[in-house]
Amino acid sequence: MESSLLCAGKEITRLYNQYVNMVYQICFLYLKNKEDTEDAVQITFIQLLKQDRLFQNEEHVKAWLIRTASNICKNQVKHWWKRNETIDVLHEIGVEDQQDCTLEILLKLPEKYKTVIYMYYYMGYTTEEIAQILKQKHTTIRSLLSRGRERLKIMIGGELS
């Protein structure tokens, strides 16, 4: 991708259609409700539109979106009025089958573990790739993943293997 991805309106539409689900999922894991998630997704893509930098390739855009979305969400979560907010998450996303509690537990995890777990298990990135994308040390990512996994296991009651 030689030139800026953002030079054409078509490119923006394509990027939006391609990555909106991913950005939405990341934001929802942090914010746990539709309205805030929609806002965060919008802010992320507006920031992408504002970008003047040249993206080297598709992976670069994807990594930028992941990092930006999680940073935006972290900032939103920091607000004092967000901290004590309790929302019926499953009702929010219209999940009727409440037998599988993995999602609820995943959402209850501390913020720092969520992106790493999502990227490792859902998107299939390796820990090295996650470290590169999130601009953190490889060892940090490995420990976050390991601790997050442990927490998940404890919260689910050891039934995950």
Binding site: F28, D100, L106, R149
Partner: peptide, 27 residues
């Protein structure tokens, strides 16, 4: 674990209507 997490995350998806609405606002 991978399967369960994947399945869980698949439940978090915006509807077509939501996508449209968000895109309009962005533009």
């Amino acid at each position: 674990m991978k399967e369960r997490i994947k399945k869980s995350c698949d439940q978090i998806l915006p509807t077509e209507q939501q996508k449209k609405k968000m895109f309009e606002i962005i533009v």
